[in-house]
């Protein structure tokens, strides 16, 4: 929080705005990258979205209310960017909806920037079977070890709803993994 305050102080001062933003990017690029990457799978798509996220942060930083957590605010922007990106993929005219998940699944097999055991890949493929928002909740809870309170602020969903969503996701994933 102290680091956030220092960064914000610099970003909101016209004389140190560029320096402050540079510090912000360096401080949060990795966490935001991995959050986006787990959702969109492909590195190049992640790179584009990460740039979009930081550009939005830059344009809207003056609207950020300092009573909330800077990272939660940026996580929320990144989350919206991911969900909109995935929605656009599915809404492409003339393409069956299932193709979007299939395309992401194919990237798990073909990307040179992915390396994991068979069972890890199977877990990722199982995740792609979930609705995007449920996958998002699962990622934040399971991989990022985030608290439900924090996820609730990012997703604007009740803690009860998140717990139910995570529980259902785990059941679905375990069922998928047991197949074969």
């Amino acid at each position: 929080m102290q680091q956030d305050r220092e960064i914000l102080k610099k970003v909101k001062n016209p004389d140190t705005r560029d320096l402050g933003f540079s510090l912000l990017v360096k401080a949060y690029q990795q966490r935001l990258y991995w959050h986006i990457r787990k959702m969109v799978i492909d590195h190049d798509d992640t790179d584009d979205l990460l740039q979009d996220v930081f550009i939005k942060v830059w344009k809207n930083i003056d609207k950020f209310r300092e009573d909330s957590n800077l990272f939660t605010w940026m996580y929320k922007i990144a989350t919206n960017e991911c969900l909109n990106f995935l929605k656009r993929k599915k809404n492409r005219f003339f393409l069956p909806i299932g193709d979007a998940a299939g395309e992401l699944s194919e990237k798990l097999n073909s990307s040179s920037y992915i390396s994991g055991s068979d069972v890890q890949l199977k877990l990722q493929k199982a995740l792609l079977k979930l609705p995007d928002k449920q996958r998002l909740v699962f990622n934040m809870k399971y991989f990022d070890d985030m608290k439900y309170e924090e996820i609730s602020k990012i997703t604007d969903t009740s803690i009860g709803g998140l717990k139910a969503s995570y529980h259902i996701a785990v059941k679905k994933i375990e069922k998928y993994i047991k197949m074969d």
Binding site: Y33, W34, H43, Y113, Q120, L123, E174, I177
Partner: peptide, 19 residues
């Protein structure tokens, strides 16, 4: 197989010097 039996390690990689 249970979920907790699977290694949580990140399987995604980035190009060298990306960050």
């Amino acid at each position: 197989m249970k979920l907790e039996d699977i290694n949580k390690e990140n399987i995604f990689k980035v190009p060298e010097n990306y960050f």
